[in-house]
Design a protein around this nucleic acid. Sequence first.
DNA 1: GTCAATGATCGTGTATACAAGAAGTGCCAC
DNA 2: GTGGCACTTCTTGTATACACGATCATTGAC
Lengths: 216, 216
Amino acid sequence: MSENVGRWLRDEIENSILSNEFSPGERLDEMVLATRFGVSRTPVREALMQLDAIGLIEIRPRRGAIVIDPGPHRVYEMFEVMAELEGLAGSLAARRLDKASREAITATHSRCEQSAAAGDSDAYYYDNEEFHKAIYAAGRSEFLEEQCVQLHRRLRPYRRLQLRVRNRLSTSFSEHCAIVDAIFAGDGDEARRLLRTHVGIQGERFSDLVASMAIR
Amino acid sequence: MSENVGRWLRDEIENSILSNEFSPGERLDEMVLATRFGVSRTPVREALMQLDAIGLIEIRPRRGAIVIDPGPHRVYEMFEVMAELEGLAGSLAARRLDKASREAITATHSRCEQSAAAGDSDAYYYDNEEFHKAIYAAGRSEFLEEQCVQLHRRLRPYRRLQLRVRNRLSTSFSEHCAIVDAIFAGDGDEARRLLRTHVGIQGERFSDLVASMAIR
DNA sequence: GTCAATGATCGTGTATACAAGAAGTGCCAC
DNA sequence: GTGGCACTTCTTGTATACACGATCATTGAC
């Protein structure tokens, strides 16, 4: 329970939002949440204030909190920023790679290979996340790493949708291969470029996203 | 008072931190803040929770809130990310520039010229901020714009220190000129490159920053 | 004289109470 | 039957009360 009910609730509610248990636009009633988690309204409110500060929900004065619905266009923008940050992380990783980071990248990369070969998109989804985190860490910029992890978290539901698209698994994995090569070769510019296109959702990948968002 | 004491307090305390009225490492006593602003502890706590979520302060369980001290290394990392995001904004601006944005950039740019010519670093500091904001807006990516503005805010105190360095004003302004040219020419890659070096603090500019941070 | 342990005090964490505003409902008039 | 106004109810915003944990100081022992 993390020693602190407010923070625990924040994570709990955040996860509920990101796993789409609370859908965009839904109203979050303080009292309902309080009874559901067996606490008073005070820590619930604190959790909500924090989520508002992060930008996951919106608290309108005297009218309660609602889950923010980013909408396809804004999600696209978020991927665009994510692509840029990942590109930076990749270029830093190529420059600063050390033994431990190299091993971490190799390990997560081969786990991706296995789940891609098995066609297990849920496993790949998880391994892919670890792979990207290994790259952030290899960049040795704590702030950048935090930003990347946070954005990655927020984009999680959409990433998951993306992987369902036909052939995306194998395409994604072959992109990973090129990225790993560039980083291990110390080619920062190439790593940056590859990661940018890997993460970004230009062209048909954007319309795929829009289509899958509409289904929900 | 924004209809909502908690939010008002958040802005108030945030400004106090960013203007160095509350210095890094300083402990923020809830009761002291409450009496100072003439409210109860509840809204103060809500404000603090939000600032914690943003990353400006750290709340340690049962031990109160302290202002986070980023330290030179982390500040450098923040500038590094900022440079990347501004680069993206610049490249988008070059691609998507319309009449209104063009005029906004021109207007803020010439205001920078005046204050640079006058050697007025405080005025330049403000005009520079507006100039960069005009570029964010020209990129037409709301999310990116928000991220840029937020990071810009957090780096504000350090930017201010930077401008005190000898000749920085005129150097900065001539860099602005090149940036404007690239954006107006529609050269996204060049705008990106120029903004990245303009905002980043490589080499001696980093040591300048460290030196000025030590003075405080 | 120094270090450790215990108690006192102060501040945070949570709950609850109360006030104020917004939304919904019902009634009345047209 | 429909639209508008008033009232009621529900929910949020703020204050306060209480409990638990942390820190600090004082006292005792080595």
